[in-house]
């Protein structure tokens, strides 16, 4: 692992991006906007799965997900740029790995929901409370994304954690 980090940081791509002084702050602003789209859109789905806002038809719970996915895409892109510009700052950070863990957890949780719970969405009647599996999926998702936010913001303070 150490070798490729040094290599990445020594590339013209990494150094070149670092030379664009406004790039880092611009990526940060976009990263914050992306997280708002993500937490807004996915949070809406998660809250509905947990049984809140029962007047929202369950089939409309994913209405804002395209925007949440756009937010995730913005953050994956800006996050990748951060990593390319300063690989060692992240690769050796316990906080960053915690962030990655929760992103993966959120993704696996979403995959679980998509592959096993799809039929139950369609069979849920209006005004009917959501099943426990939905509530757990929603809670895990919401908690995970806020954990991602937490560890991301705490990066300059937790660092390696050591």
């Amino acid at each position: 692992m150490p070798g490729w980090i040094g290599w990445l940081e020594s590339t013209r791509l990494s150094a070149g991006m670092r030379d664009i002084t406004w790039l880092w702050p611009a990526c940060e602003s976009l990263h914050f906007m992306g997280l708002c789209l993500l937490i807004g859109g996915a949070g809406f789905l998660d809250l509905r799965l947990m049984g809140f806002m029962p007047k929202v038809p369950i089939t409309s719970a994913k209405a804002f997900m395209p925007w949440a996915i756009a937010g995730f895409a913005i953050n994956l892109t800006t996050g990748s740029l951060f990593f390319i510009m300063a690989p060692a700052m992240y690769a050796f950070s316990a906080a960053w790995w915690a962030k990655v863990f929760f992103i993966v957890l959120a993704g696996l949780n979403a995959m679980f929901f998509e592959t096993t719970q799809g039929a139950r969405v369609l069979s849920l009647g209006p005004g009917e409370d959501t099943p426990v599996a939905f509530k757990i999926v929603g809670a895990v998702s919401l908690t995970s994304w806020f954990a991602v936010l937490y560890f991301g913001r705490m990066l300059p303070y937790i660092g390696t954690g050591n």
């Binding site: 914050f32 708002c36 807004g40 949070g43 809406f44 806020f146 936010l149 937490y150 913001r153």
Partner: peptide
């Protein structure tokens, strides 16, 4: 960690709630 770091992180979480709800 409960001082500046936590206060700053709460500010970010609040931002996510405000703007996330606004987005919807």
């Amino acid at each position: 960690l409960l001082a500046y770091p936590t206060i700053l992180t709460l500010h970010t979480a609040g931002l996510a709630l405000v703007v996330g709800a606004s987005v919807v």
